[in-house]
Write a protein that binds this DNA or RNA. Sequence first.
DNA 1: GTGAAAGCGCTAACAG
DNA 2: CTGTTAGCGCTTTCAC
Lengths: 364, 364
Amino acid sequence: MSTDGSRRRDVTVADVAKAAQVSKAQAARALGNYGAVSDDVRERVLAAAEELEYRPNELARSMNTGKSNTLGVVVGDIENPHFGLAMRGITDTAKKGGYNVVLINTDEEQAAEVDAVRVLLDKRVDGLIVAPASSIETAHLRQVRESGRPLVLLDRAAEGVDAETFAVDMGGISYESTKHLIEAGHRRIAFVSTVRTNAPYFAGMKLDSSQISDRLDGIHRAFNEAGLPQPTDLIRLNAGDADSIMRITRELLRGKDRATAIIASDGLIALSVVEAIQSSGLSIPEDVSFLMYDDFAWTRLTTPPLTVIAQPVYEMGQAAASALIRQIEGRKAGAPSPELVARLIRRGSVGAPRTADVLSQAGG
Amino acid sequence: MSTDGSRRRDVTVADVAKAAQVSKAQAARALGNYGAVSDDVRERVLAAAEELEYRPNELARSMNTGKSNTLGVVVGDIENPHFGLAMRGITDTAKKGGYNVVLINTDEEQAAEVDAVRVLLDKRVDGLIVAPASSIETAHLRQVRESGRPLVLLDRAAEGVDAETFAVDMGGISYESTKHLIEAGHRRIAFVSTVRTNAPYFAGMKLDSSQISDRLDGIHRAFNEAGLPQPTDLIRLNAGDADSIMRITRELLRGKDRATAIIASDGLIALSVVEAIQSSGLSIPEDVSFLMYDDFAWTRLTTPPLTVIAQPVYEMGQAAASALIRQIEGRKAGAPSPELVARLIRRGSVGAPRTADVLSQAGG
DNA sequence: GTGAAAGCGCTAACAG
DNA sequence: CTGTTAGCGCTTTCAC
């Protein structure tokens, strides 16, 4: 009888109240667990609710209370394990705090992100976690702050947006990693990223992603300090899809002045770079050294295992979610959130460059 | 002045109506793009809305229309790239159809799933996509159907639940893969899965996951057909976390009657199995052959590259989402959704077993 | 085309 | 403790 297929009218507090022979208000109080209700009434109401299979309408509830118990999350690409893991940190924390999560994927498109933020605001989420596609075009984020809705940022900072940001110190770890490569003897270090630019790259150039800018600054700093010429020509942005990354990698490894080490900007890029190196018949680290951002389990399975920059991604998600919830609930920051530090994990993919390369380059 | 921090009262249709000097109803019609509105009124309303930075309250809208334009998605583990990719298929399709996605992660816990479904229903999502943790305990899913809300299943079927299911034919591909191993000479083939059981495994045992049952059936079928003894003792369920999987793997590879081939039930398990094999100083495929479900990019980077069972995961997500949206919008199935077929991709991780193993086992 | 008024299902004042 | 009465912001009759 209830399997009639057609969506039957939902049962409401009014129905329950009638069945329990109490006022709507009393029923609502018993059901919503607020206000004062006698044991007798509560029992009758709860019984009636059970009997009728009453389920609260959270939309109606949210409308009155102004709270939806929902966090909005905007990320560039949920397919990227980096975000998958962060998302896990977010949802775990949200659940613990009694919140749900609405996810919107932007494909790293600025327009999609602006749209996503608006949609979530319209849906009256209680707060937003955004991994901004651009650190420069941030008007939509500033609007969020102006509307007074809590907002925290993940991974990358956003100019002019006064919001808690959860990310590691990219400049520092990039400097450290570059130094590691320089000390191993490398002078020609390449960096591959998918960040989009419309002008050709030059040192100090303003980039859409604060994260990448910081990494490049770290690289430059290490080279400066070592009194070595910047390998600016080996900074490859706009890397695009897998094929394009493989093509770029092959280019990087060609010629007299070739790269002797490559840094991949994330796990997805790394896959294509390593594949290109392998399919070129080159060995890591004998022919080329390799370093990548993010420590995924598979990086231990290649031969040799890969040297990586590990970020506490899950913890970043956790920290972002709990900070957001704290803001939503109007609590002051209590214990400072755990420090988010990246670590260089040295495995087997960084070695000395071939002597031939060093000589040819020095001589050229 | 608008940066006062405190959440200012949202501007409503009433405000816009007043500013545009029209009735609330007219303003609502112009804003909501329905009903009949003169050009003059529309213009004034839109101008006023712009001026006041009016934003519709989707909650209120949903309450009246009974539509939230939201799909609820329940998965076991968003950290698992399998679901990350499926999720991408879902969100891409949802966005195209004008829907948002609420995601709940269940950690493969039955109780969490029951809860998740209830929460989503209470939030009045327009429909649900569930990758059921259990194919047996399905009361909560049956309730969804009975409530009349659209539901589609992903990856696994659910007993007694009449819902469109998007998954590949696991029995078939498992049979084919096992046959491939048998033809390579293997008799001792292990299977490692995290599916939970409370009784020790026996052939034909009823499992929580239809997906795993089907795979095991496929294995048994292949062995039967070849007239070979079932390697029932090598079926390892309840594999648990990474450490536990590594321990199990080492066990499997010990002793006279050891496994000569291992099948990993998903990408996460595969990582630990391969790591255990490598750290035991064994080589693939010389010492042990290896086969896994899901074709992730990293499987091409190991030495040797891994033989995998590729599933069209993204397409499954797409198909599930579009079927759900179709149901929500009450349309009949049009063009049948593309066939979801798994493929065995032979790379380098399957070879012949060592003669010594074959002899010792035949002799034992 | 337009406007007044009645809800959607719930919470929140406010009297008793 | 209980019930009555207003809303929340929007859509939707229903008259004009």
